[in-house]
């Protein structure tokens, strides 16, 4: 049973405006995500939700200044970006990056080979990719296109979930996967996430600004994120409260800083 444990995590980014050149964004995050569970993290803009996501994946822009992150007791913070991915941490990005000249099929196979530790057998792999793409309503021609190049917002998000389904991580972090999606795309993407959740093999950290996606993906726990930490936790009913009341109760003077 894979368990991601985040304890008292402090993270800063480089900043020109502060004396020591760092600005603290995460101010002591505590969270435990177990395989099979779904946690929604909700919060206003600027509360640090995405910083949490990118810090867990190891983006070089963020500096961890305190706290620990472990996956089954292994020190995630000591791992490089690719080591984290191979250890089972997957980040579906809010703004997936274009990689010119690298085809989706080549990219998927290269990453599957890296994550699984061996090249998938060609015959079963082709079938697996084809079927997964069909379920996500991704046109087969996508396989020959360059990664994220010229993709619409919805196509990028479906491509992220395609990777989620193929790479089968033990911890999936979905960073605002719902933002910018129309209802149809949101449904298709959510179904993809639910297929992965139903295996019971993945712990999901669903980061979102809106409650809309929670109609499709039912969380076990909801956490409100403000000012760089979790300020309230509860069940699905907490999302309903946020839906009705917004974040004003958690935000001083209209901002989260």
């Amino acid at each position: 049973m894979a368990t991601l444990e985040i304890h008292d995590l402090h993270v800063s980014v480089e900043s020109d405006s502060s004396a020591d050149g760092l600005r603290e964004i995460l101010r002591g995050v505590d969270l435990t995500v177990k395989q099979g569970e779904t946690h929604a993290i909700m919060g206003p803009n600027g509360s640090g939700k995405s910083t949490l996501a990118y810090s867990l994946a190891g983006h070089p822009k963020y500096t961890v200044t305190g706290g620990t992150v472990t996956l089954d007791g292994e020190d995630v913070l000591a791992m490089s970006v690719d080591e984290r991915a191979r250890a089972g941490v997957f980040l579906a990005m809010q703004y997936p990056v274009e990689v010119p000249g690298v085809s989706v099929s080549n990219f998927l196979r290269t990453s599957a080979t890296a994550v699984r530790g061996e090249a998938p057998k060609l015959r079963t792999w082709v079938k697996e990719v084809k079927e997964t793409m069909e379920r996500l309503q991704i046109d087969p021609s996508f396989a020959e296109r360059n990664v994220n190049e010229g993709f619409s917002g919805g196509e990028k998000k479906r491509h992220e979930i395609l990777q989620l389904e193929l790479l089968k991580p033990s911890i999936a972090i979905l960073d605002e996967t719902d933002s910018g999606l129309d209802v149809d795309a949101l449904r298709v993407v959510s179904e993809g996430v639910n297929r992965v959740r139903e295996t019971g093999e993945v712990g999901t950290l669903l980061i979102t600004h809106y409650t809309r996606i929670l109609r499709y993906i039912k969380p076990d726990q909801v956490h409100v994120f403000a000012g760089g930490r979790i300020v309230e936790s509860g069940g699905a009913e907490l999302a309903d409260k946020l839906e009705n009341e917004g974040y004003t109760a958690y935000v001083k003077g209209g901002t989260s800083e």
Partner: peptide, 12 residues
């Protein structure tokens, strides 16, 4: 780009 590819397990 490097981060994106590495975040999918691909070594540097």
């Amino acid at each position: 780009q490097l981060f994106y590819l590495m975040a999918r397990g691909i070594p540097h």
